[in-house]
C-alpha cells in the first residue's frame, strides 16, 4: 500500500498532495484518545496546580505564594525530604551497583543472576505501607533485630539515639526499594561492558584499577548518575511508607502536602499549589537530567 502510493508519487507529481493529506488526518485520529487522556488526566491537572501557584485567592497573578514557601516549617520539610532522597539515592546507587557488578562480572554461579533480578523486581515494587510494617517488625522498639542485638550482644539500639521514625530510619527503609531498583537499572548497563575492552586494557598493561578508572567508569557514568537521579525522584515523591512509618511526626514535604490536601493545614489553598509546584520542579529537573544522561549512556550499549 505504501509502496504503491510512493510509486504514484514519483509517477504523477500532481496526485500525491491530497493523498498524503488524507493519510495525515487519518493518522492523527488514531492517537486522539491517548492524547485526550493525557491532557485531561495528566497534563491539565498538573498545569492547574502550576497556574494556581502563581495566583492569589482572587485569581490575580502573584509571586507571593512562592515567596511564602520560604517560611521555616516549609523550608525544613523540603530540606529533610531532599536529605533523605539524596542519601537514600546515593547509598542505593553504591550498594545496588556493587551487588549488580558482583552478580554480572565475576563468574559467580549461573543461578544467582536470574534469582537476583527476580527478587529485585519484587523488592523494588514492595514499597508503601507493607514495607513500613516490615521495618517496624525488624528495627522497631519490639522488632526482631532490636531484640536480638539487645539480648545476645547486649547492644541497645535505641539507647544510641537511633529511632526508626527519623532521618536514618526512613533512609534505611527506603533503601529496601532503592537498592533493587538500582540493580535492575545497572545490570543491562554492566552487561554493555564488552569483554574485549577489559582484554585490550589488560594487554596494554593496565591494572584492574586502571581498567575501572579509565575505561569502565567513563562508559558507565551516564548510566550511574542517571540511575541515581531516578532513585532520587523515586524517594522524593514517596508518601505511603513514610506516612505509615512515622504518621505525621516526621515533617517531610510529601507528608506536609498530604496534610494540606486533607485539611488545608497551611490555611492558604494557593500556597498548597506552590508546594506541589516546588515538588514538580525538583523531580522534573532530576528526571530530565536522567533522560538526557540515559540517552548518552545508551550510545555505548549498541
Amino acid at each position: 500500500m505504501v509502496d504503491q502510493s510512493e510509486a504514484q508519487a514519483i509517477a504523477i507529481p500532481a496526485q500525491p498532495a491530497p493523498a498524503r493529506a488524507s493519510t495525515f488526518s487519518w493518522a492523527w485520529i488514531g492517537v486522539t484518545p491517548f492524547l485526550a487522556f493525557a491532557v485531561l488526566f495528566l497534563i491539565a491537572p498538573t498545569l492547574f496546580l502550576i497556574v494556581g501557584a502563581f495566583q492569589d485567592a482572587q485569581g490575580h497573578f502573584t509571586l507571593a505564594n512562592l515567596a511564602d514557601l520560604a517560611q521555616p516549617s516549609i523550608v525544613r520539610a523540603y530540606r529533610i525530604s531532599l536529605e533523605i532522597s539524596i542519601t537514600s539515592a546515593i547509598l542505593g546507587a553504591i550498594f545496588g551497583s556493587l551487588i549488580a557488578a558482583a552478580a554480572v562480572l565475576n563468574g559467580l554461579p549461573g543461578w544467582l543472576r536470574p534469582t537476583l533480578l527476580t527478587f529485585s523486581g519484587v523488592a523494588s515494587q514492595f514499597a508503601g505501607v507493607p514495607l513500613a510494617f516490615a521495618f517496624l517488625a525488624t528495627l522497631g522498639r519490639t522488632g526482631l533485630v532490636t531484640y536480638l542485638l539487645n539480648t545476645y550482644l547486649g547492644f541497645n539500639l535505641y539507647s544510641t539515639g537511633f529511632n526508626l521514625l527519623s532521618f536514618w530510619g526512613l533512609t534505611i527503609t527506603y533503601l529496601y526499594f532503592q537498592i533493587p531498583l538500582m540493580i535492575l537499572i545497572m545490570t543491562p548497563a554492566l552487561d554493555g561492558l564488552k569483554r574485549e575492552w577489559r582484554e585490550a586494557s589488560a594487554i596494554l598493561g593496565a591494572s584492574t584499577w586502571q581498567y575501572w578508572r579509565y575505561v569502565a567508569l567513563p562508559v558507565l557514568w551516564p548510566s550511574l548518575l542517571g540511575a541515581t537521579l531516578l532513585l532520587f525522584a523515586n524517594a522524593f515523591g514517596a508518601v505511603a511508607t513514610a506516612y505509615a512509618l512515622t504518621g505525621s511526626s516526621l515533617n517531610i514535604v510529601t507528608i506536609l502536602l498530604f496534610a494540606q490536601i486533607r485539611g488545608d493545614v497551611l490555611h492558604n489553598a494557593n500556597l498548597g499549589y506552590a508546594l506541589a509546584f516546588g515538588m514538580i520542579l525538583i523531580t522534573g529537573v532530576s528526571n530530565g537530567a536522567y533522560i538526557w544522561l540515559r540517552s548518552r549512556g545508551e550510545r555505548w550499549l549498541k
Partner: peptide, 20 residues
C-alpha cells in the same frame, strides 16, 4: 508523555484531580 507519571509524583497528580 508516558514517562510523565515518573516525573510528577502521584500525590501531585491526585492533588490536581481533586481540585480539577
Amino acid at each position: 508523555i508516558t514517562l510523565l507519571p515518573l516525573v510528577i509524583p502521584a500525590i501531585v497528580i491526585v492533588f490536581g484531580y481533586i481540585r480539577m
